[in-house]
């Protein structure tokens, strides 16, 4: 057959696309379980990381079952949704739904007698989505720990939010100000506060202003969704005065 004829060109293109498409479909389906397992275990690893339990991905499942004592999905007014599996909730999809249909997962951890509330975060960085988890102590004011991750922030700049030294800055910070108003924690440029844990601010990463603003926004926006639940079910009143 003439290699430059139209018929040959069409046949070649169709055959190539069919071969490539089936090869990729086969690879994607056969690798899917292994990929899903990685994602699930990483999520558990991140949740545990906020309450100070650093673990490898392999042992994440066991420790998760040991320390996470409760998981609930909450509606916007703070009532638990019994029919929703909190761990399976995808915040990315939830945030696109109408407000009254949204479900927000809350994890309750019990580590050696201390109770922590772990809230998943999701927001926008400079290039793409950023997300994370933040753990609050029993007073629902002091931060026990935070974990951040990102899809495509600049390596060496915005991508540094995943590093331990940045996460450490959030520990012991308060989300309410002295008068009981909800503030969150702002990632502040030109921060002069040193180790002050009562000013609702931490030092930003130079060169990563927009990623830092994204972290600020996602902490206050996501935590706001949980305030109705915290008001009814915890001793948050102390922080709110």
């Amino acid at each position: 057959m003439d290699r430059n004829s139209n018929a040959y060109t069409f046949l070649f293109a169709i055959a190539l696309v069919a071969v490539v498409a089936s090869a990729l479909a086969f690879a994607a389906t056969s690798l899917q379980p292994a990929q899903a397992k990685n994602v699930k275990e990483e999520k558990m690893q991140n949740i545990l990381g906020t309450v100070g339990i650093e673990t490898s991905r392999d042992s994440a499942q066991v420790l998760f079952n040991k320390y996470i004592v409760d998981q609930v999905a909450l509606s916007n007014d703070g009532t638990p949704k019994a029919d929703v599996n909190a761990f399976e909730v995808d915040l990315k999809k939830e945030l696109k739904k109408p407000v009254e249909e949204q479900a927000f997962p809350l994890y309750v951890a019990n580590v050696e007698g201390s109770k922590y509330y772990i809230v998943p975060l999701r927001g926008k960085g400079l290039w793409d989505a950023i997300w994370g988890y933040i753990a609050l102590k029993d007073d629902v004011n002091t931060i026990k720990g935070a974990v951040f991750d990102h899809k495509g922030e600049t390596p060496g700049l915005g991508a540094e939010i995943t590093q331990g030294w940045f996460r450490k800055r959030f520990e012991e910070e308060k989300i309410f100000d002295g008068d009981g108003n909800f503030i969150g924690v702002s990632v502040a440029k030109g921060y002069q506060g040193g180790d002050n844990k009562d000013d609702n601010a931490v030092d930003a990463i130079s060169g990563a202003t927009i990623t830092g603003d994204g972290v600020t926004d996602m902490i206050s926006e996501r935590l706001k969704n949980y305030l109705p639940y915290f008001e009814k079910n915890t001793n948050i009143k102390v922080a709110m005065k």
Partner: peptide, 29 residues
């Protein structure tokens, strides 16, 4: 066929890259 050779190259490269990405995600997360 020489008329569509660039597209053929692109399809082959893209398929390989997706394959590399998928394998990394499963075994070298």
């Amino acid at each position: 066929p020489s008329r569509i050779r660039i597209i053929v190259q692109l399809v082959v490269v893209a398929a390989l890259v997706i394959l590399v990405d998928q394998v990394l995600r499963a075994y070298a997360y």
